[in-house]
Nucleic acid binder design. Sequence first.
DNA 1: CGTCGGGTTGATAACTTTCAAATTTCGTGG
DNA 2: CCACGAAATTTGAAAGTTATCAACCCGACG
Lengths: 243, 243
Amino acid sequence: MTMQQSPLVRKLSSFVGLSENELSVLDIFQRHRRSFPAGADLVHEGQTDATAFVLSDGWVSSYKVLRGGGRQIVDFQIPGDFLGLRSVLFRTADHNIEPITQVNASEFGASDMLKAFEASPRLAAAVLWSASCNEAVVVERLVSLGRRDATERTAHFLLELGARLKLVGLATKEGYRCPLSQYHLADALGLSAIHVNRVLRQLREEGFLTFRNGEVTFDDFDQLVKAADFDAAYLDYDGPMMK
Amino acid sequence: MTMQQSPLVRKLSSFVGLSENELSVLDIFQRHRRSFPAGADLVHEGQTDATAFVLSDGWVSSYKVLRGGGRQIVDFQIPGDFLGLRSVLFRTADHNIEPITQVNASEFGASDMLKAFEASPRLAAAVLWSASCNEAVVVERLVSLGRRDATERTAHFLLELGARLKLVGLATKEGYRCPLSQYHLADALGLSAIHVNRVLRQLREEGFLTFRNGEVTFDDFDQLVKAADFDAAYLDYDGPMMK
DNA sequence: CGTCGGGTTGATAACTTTCAAATTTCGTGG
DNA sequence: CCACGAAATTTGAAAGTTATCAACCCGACG
């Protein structure tokens, strides 16, 4: 009997070939499926009893708020991503996690993870790899915030999102559905919403991409990639790299 | 016979209590000790045969270069940190690694890691935890680049470095030795070296801190913490959190 | 209808960069 | 010990990018 491949399984499989047994161990992570409404934090900074999740459906944002009230979105999670892995490894959660859309996610705790690691060291490596992928995304955004101007940054971000969504079948080279507001973009890109608006207009008028009505359309993908200096290498994991 | 505690052991011990056996397994990571001169890249972006290291002595920077020639330093590593963990998990290295000072580091490969994971799932959790600490640092810098102005950003960074160094006994509340140039700071903080210079002058003149002659001195630690909105929670791991 | 969360636009202000140039520091050879 | 050159630091002035403030528009919704 073939098991329905969850986004998580699909993703981890692209790193290590998983045995039947390992697949069933992975189930530990996906037992307690729950549903959450948009807007209400799943985890908030400082929380000490946080659990982790595997996202199976919907969009989520991880963010921090600053003293002055500003906020910085660290990353968006899409189906197949872990949520709050850091929060369970640390004593206290170091960031907030908020669903942007209605969301389905499976809850698990640190002990579940350790159990999985005991059952299969290869799974441990796979989880570490997955966390590394996440870090690679954060690093690339760091580079954007540090050294790219608003236009490159925005284009790069929208391309990256497209590449990630494509991996789970939610985007094509043409574009994708995107529930983010310009405020979300602003908080992720370290810009004001007003400036994001101007940048989006410019990108649209110059024929690069259209961000509108919850839909991102790449009007000229190749030019865009060039303009944004985008290289998907850090997202590119086709085929298991550990036999 | 008591083993000399390496920075790595000290660090991982603060997450999980390690058994005699696990300590000896950890040795896998520290067998091939090597020495490297400042300036010559240990790993360069795109390299496909990269190995990983545990840093035991000296300072290292991880950075990316952009099309336009600019560079963004993602993080500095200090003794006890892993180098290039991502590079061995990915097919190709996604960033450059350059020693800032003369450096001692132990080399290991993906297979060594898997061997260690097989010997002890708790070690796997410890490595994952360590990677998460790293990510937390990167995330905090992301927040700085996105939402803090040059002054807060600089102060925050220098405080963070101090906190990290203190954990391995290389800093006090008074300050620490710091081999970074203002160019290093600029490339890490997403600023121009010239502006970094102005900011440092301002911080010095206002009695917050002095960055000079390879030495960072906190002239008013408490005020500085307040001004930078610095909260060391994300670095604060005293006492094993897994029994 | 009236409000509310997006989205859009213009004008002005703030922060940072860039360019140009002087000064200091530091390692090295005389 | 001093001189010299390279690298790092420092400063001023002008230009550029992005934020802030103040409106206005629009569609969804009670």
